[in-house]
Design a binder for these strands. Sequence first.
DNA 1: CATGAATGAGCTTTCATTCAT
DNA 2: TATGAATGAAAGCTCATTCAT
Lengths: 218, 218, 218, 218
Amino acid sequence: MTPTMPATEPACDGSASQPDDSPKRQQILDGARRMFLSKGFEGASMQDVARAAAVSKGTLYVYFDSKEAMFEALVLKECGRMQETLRRLGSGQGSVEDELQAIAHQMIAMLLQPEILAAMRMMIGAGEKFPDLARKIYQSGPERSVATLADYLHLRESRGDLAIGDCPAAAAEFVDLILSGLQRRALLMMPPLSAAETQAYVARRVARFLTGLKPAIV
Amino acid sequence: MTPTMPATEPACDGSASQPDDSPKRQQILDGARRMFLSKGFEGASMQDVARAAAVSKGTLYVYFDSKEAMFEALVLKECGRMQETLRRLGSGQGSVEDELQAIAHQMIAMLLQPEILAAMRMMIGAGEKFPDLARKIYQSGPERSVATLADYLHLRESRGDLAIGDCPAAAAEFVDLILSGLQRRALLMMPPLSAAETQAYVARRVARFLTGLKPAIV
Amino acid sequence: MTPTMPATEPACDGSASQPDDSPKRQQILDGARRMFLSKGFEGASMQDVARAAAVSKGTLYVYFDSKEAMFEALVLKECGRMQETLRRLGSGQGSVEDELQAIAHQMIAMLLQPEILAAMRMMIGAGEKFPDLARKIYQSGPERSVATLADYLHLRESRGDLAIGDCPAAAAEFVDLILSGLQRRALLMMPPLSAAETQAYVARRVARFLTGLKPAIV
Amino acid sequence: MTPTMPATEPACDGSASQPDDSPKRQQILDGARRMFLSKGFEGASMQDVARAAAVSKGTLYVYFDSKEAMFEALVLKECGRMQETLRRLGSGQGSVEDELQAIAHQMIAMLLQPEILAAMRMMIGAGEKFPDLARKIYQSGPERSVATLADYLHLRESRGDLAIGDCPAAAAEFVDLILSGLQRRALLMMPPLSAAETQAYVARRVARFLTGLKPAIV
DNA sequence: CATGAATGAGCTTTCATTCAT
DNA sequence: TATGAATGAAAGCTCATTCAT
């Protein structure tokens, strides 16, 4: 009766009668985004989403089979966004230490955004219910950060600026040292560090990270 | 209403006046524990809790004024458990490296328990609604780990086994390096490392942590 | 929340935005009427109302924000009905005594209707919770009767049929003499007077009312 | 098992094992009185009553079979009180007009007490559910006032101060003229008359009442 | 395609009542 | 006798979902 085809599938037949990127669909996902991020999966009602998207409640079900399907579609889309965001980290000029500090600050600024935290919170909270989605978030976020950073470290190593060995492992260490703890704090509602505290924190941890990774001088 | 009230007040008015350790109350908290940990605050209904505790729904309200009060009581109790769990870490014999590895393994085993993860997940999910409780969880868990470890590092430094300087900062770095990242993985439903992987991971990261903290020889 | 809000506001947010005269809304008010009049505000459950109106419980909340809002809307509507009912009393022909007797009979017949009594009972019962509404009922019912009658007495006085002086006061006396006591009896479930008893009662009381209001002859 | 004998019956057997006037029973009725009068039948919970009476909820059911039975017992007891209260009205000295005014003021003061109004309200609200009780209230209150007053009028007539004829009818007229309307106003939450207004009201209405009841001079 | 009226199951909470002690 | 722990039914209300238009 109503279109029951899985709403997140890419178009099934040639006609693309209801493509993934219909403007109405985007409009709904936009509303869903605002609501889910601010109220969580259980806290946001379909009424909320409909209102935020400025469509009727019925229309929601034209584009998504259920609240859960809509949530899934939203998360997948967000994963895409996050990956794009992470693509441009570090340019390769300046001293290693300066640049790693800059990268650290970028990562902190980016991943401690209220919006990102809300997304993490939402996904962790809903993790038991949607384990696959949670994994996808992990892969699009933290894992992707590590990969990007590993590339950067590799670049620096190839230039002779660092002596690393296992770049992916070092990248993971960097991310944990810089980000994981801070993020955990934020997720559990601890007050954020002040700008000065952040500065000192980054300086110290980056230095710590670099200990032993400097190449032997000649 | 406010989530900071102890909720286990001595008798006061009609409700929730049972002593803290009434067996029925424990029985209810047990049921609540199972349900809240597995489904989160919003996901678990009072019906669920009643069923899990094998009491009637009405009885729940004999012991707790509201769902929120019950949740609060549960979380506070869990905080106590977590703190006790963390009290015994590190004994002080053996080489620094061996012992830090042992501590790392203990921490991992302890804080990646499904139960502890569920508690973290629950509180992260409910954090926006109960920020004070979330902070309490942070203080009972991660913060406590750091403090315990800082004591240990201080001991080692006083023995001349390490040259650290700022023990709390180093302890925080250790925890982030060893635990934070792993915990984040787990929270987002990534499969746990195998025993062998964990072994290698710990060995590498502990070594990494020790770089530059060894005292000058002589 | 506050019982003085009209509750029939034009569209505003999610709920209760239906026009005043939606047929469904009328249907619900009809059911509400039956239930509230027969069981009172607290005695009638939303389930009762839903059943009486032959709609689902959920539908009730599409048209009204709360039980209280529904009650309010109903009472206000009833006030309107009551005022209309009272608009046509007394025509102005015949002897004063005959006509006052006719008016008395009309008032008795009208205001001792089971329906009107039920409305009074309902509002008296709920009066502590909805004082403003109770006042509105008073103004639409008893107060209106007095005003209508005062007009009539004034007309008769201007024709020289009566010598009254303070027409509103006299009207109030008439209403108390004829109606108030009878209504109180009915509200406390005393059996109604028989037709013959009513006849005698009215005759005697109207005569009593007219004592001293006859103009001096010549 | 539990004593199921109708709690309001006079003692059934010689032993009077649980007499109507057991102190505990009085204590409970006292609590019930406070709660029912202030919150109404539906608004007051057995918990409230138990608390107000300073007994346990279970004890309530030792003395009364149900909430309704307790209510009934309370109302019956109140009827007794009211009758006693009304026994002493008017002493028989002073001018008729002065004394009737005094009586009117007494009646008003007595029957417009918040407590009495609350009782009336409660009974009118509960009238449909307890018609017999409502009737008993009527007989103990208004009807009793009329009878008491009729006696007084009769006394005055026998002294030649008034020429009445049908004393009970006149008494009923007096009560309606003085009280019924005022009580109705109060029941529907209209603000009470000021002292000065009451004074004027009583003066006028008593004068009105006396019109035509004065004996022919000589 | 889009709507919004309608639903019924489910939510948290309250309460009269029972019963073992 | 008196208790208070325990219950289950029902309260007011919300919400994901359906369907005729």
